[in-house]
Design a binder for these strands. Structure first.
Lengths: 341, 341
DNA sequence: CCGCTGGTCCAAAGCGCTTTGGGGGCCGGG
DNA sequence: CCCGGCCCCCAAAGCGCTTTGGACCAGCGG
């Protein structure tokens, strides 16, 4: 059933039917009623592709996820993010178009989605150093919003980010207050912007107290359980092992905890752990009492907010930049305690 | 730059240019070369939406993910699955269109994607009891492939599934062989087809030895860490607690392990655990020696295969059903040992 | 020399929708 | 009585691409 058929059926022009359905004022009340009824009865729904072609708006938002054998982007965090964003899209009648590409083809994927596939906007995930995507997107003129921030100069684009530096500074401060002096940092890949900012926070907390940080106790890796385990394990094997860890994700922290336990030590007594917690739905940080002391910020909420901003941007391309930096909570859990003597 | 402009530039008709780019034989070699060169130079890429309208094929595959406050579908397993499927789509020039909807609107989302958004096919996730989606999709005539199987009669549709019953029967057999007689089952939601089959495998292993299973030791829940913890905790608090667990996902198993440890017990000695492992990229089951003894099957590979089958189905709608039941491996890890006396 | 067959290329007709630019009634004011 | 306005509605022109149905021009066999 298409517009033409429905119109013929009603003895009306396609113009009128289209307008009646679209809610335009140029159509009589009674006519509109009839049209709506007929559409419902015959299950008519306008063909989106055709509408997209006619209007130039495709009612879809693009996400591209790079993937490369155990890559850190196709990850639980990402899943929760798109769950949040997807809710907003669905409510606004938008689709979500995802392109999964291997790392090298990423730029091409952005170009393709923005150009030929005709999404109306894009979300940029995981900004990092030397990231060509910013220029790329500006070049194509596609509206976009960044989850996170590109490193470097003052951003003039839309973004939603967590105050990573502050979060990790506070986390580190807590451990320092508890008397810990050898603290390991289990961070994400160093080229990722968020990891860099967290590192800065970690370092600045030390600096503020005139303490030096041992570069060897800083590990950058993929944010998997195994990587967390390996990194923690290695640090714990050092002659003067850390008495505490600051960790970049709950999953890594699980690995860290496993390493601690494997060493016959107890988390929260022998070794303290503070982790960042993205509040993933299927991997919560315990029940009433959090397992881990954690800096906390919902990535799903971030997904929602990014989507909202993007849709607003699509509607008003020339408004000033919409930028949000979220403060994360620092919640106390069972994984931290005073430094052992 | 659109087709018309490019054609004018070349002094050719749009027909010829379109065909040259499409690789059709009706165009001279030299002309084709010129066209290709010009297209590359000016960065011309055909507008997908227009092409979709013209051909009737939209070059997109639909996935719908239901979501409902801490739902089990927007989960890490799902992330890995679409990573696998996405690779295949990308290579074949397909897009992935995702619709995130709250549980109630699921049927509508399928209908919409299949009808107006014009995807060429759909993947069905998480088949369950009383699932209306099968009829729905048949009704719309959209090609689809199921990840898993619908409960009930002999399937006549395309699907890729793991032999869940066999996997859990073997897992249970292993524990029984080790002398365990009180085994807890930490399973997914009971209405999910895979959970039902796993339960069957668990029970049949007991039946085959003339052992009865204590229904109280069977827990069905969401497959989160916390749910795993809670369920295991409760079972361990019973007067005659289980000496072993069969668990439906690695994430749940992590919760289970936490519960065991919280009880002052040691995994692999006091309490054995066998879990299903979906081989998620960021949550691997340890390094050389698996942490958990596990039934193992890559969900990412399943995603790839589902996508391949779906694309084949789209190309040949009338071929016989393509159905695969994968045998999962049973790998020995450090989480199992003989039953304590 | 002619009709035929291939090889190239083109004009034009869609695909299904939105939207511009009117076109008839009908009413009220001059 | 006439004309301008207002309401409703319609015809038709795209949106950018694919694809059908030729057209034109060799080249070739008869």
């Amino acid at each position: 059933m298409n517009l033409k058929e429905l119109s013929d059926l009603l003895g009306l022009s396609t113009t009128t039917v289209s307008r009646a359905l679209g809610g335009y004022p140029e159509v009589g009340a009674e006519t509109r009623r009839r049209v709506r009824a007929a559409a419902a009865e015959h299950g008519y729904r306008p063909n989106r592709r055709a509408a997209a072609l006619a209007t130039g708006r495709s009612m879809a938002i693009g996400h591209v996820i790079p993937t490369n054998q155990g890559n850190e982007m196709v990850n639980p965090v990402f899943a929760d993010f798109i769950a949040g964003a997807g809710e907003v899209y669905a409510q606004a009648g938008y689709d979500m178009t995802m392109s999964v590409v291997s790392d090298g083809d990423e730029a091409m994927a952005y170009r393709q989605l923005a150009m030929d596939r005709g999404v109306d906007g894009m979300i940029v995930h995981g900004p990092r150093e030397h990231d060509s995507r910013l220029d790329l997107l500006r070049e194509t003129g596609t509206p976009f919003v960044v989850h996170g921030r590109f490193p470097g100069s003052e951003p003039d684009y839309d973004f939603v980010d967590v105050d990573n530096a502050r979060a990790f500074r506070r986390a580190t401060d807590l451990l320092l207050d508890l008397g810990h002096r050898r603290i390991g940092l289990l961070n994400g890949p160093v080229h990722m912007d968020f990891a860099r900012r967290r590192l800065d926070g970690f370092v600045s907390a030390h600096d503020a107290r005139g303490l030096s940080v041992d570069r060897a106790s800083i590990r950058h890796s993929e944010m998997s359980e195994q990587a967390g385990y390996d990194a923690a394990r290695r640090l714990l094997a050092a002659p003067r092992p850390p008495t505490a860890f600051v960790v970049s994700s709950l999953i890594m922290a699980l690995g860290g905890r496993r390493a601690v336990q494997d060493g016959g030590l107890t988390v929260g007594r022998d070794v303290s752990i503070v982790t960042h917690d993205d509040m993933l739905s299927y991997l919560t940080n315990g029940g009433d009492v959090p397992i881990f002391t954690a800096t906390r910020s919902s990535v799903r909420a971030a997904g929602r907010r990014c989507a909202e901003i993007l849709l607003a941007r699509v509607a008003a391309p020339d408004d000033g930049p919409m930028q949000e930096v979220w403060k994360s909570d620092l919640v106390l859990g069972a994984s931290t305690g005073p430094a052992p003597d």
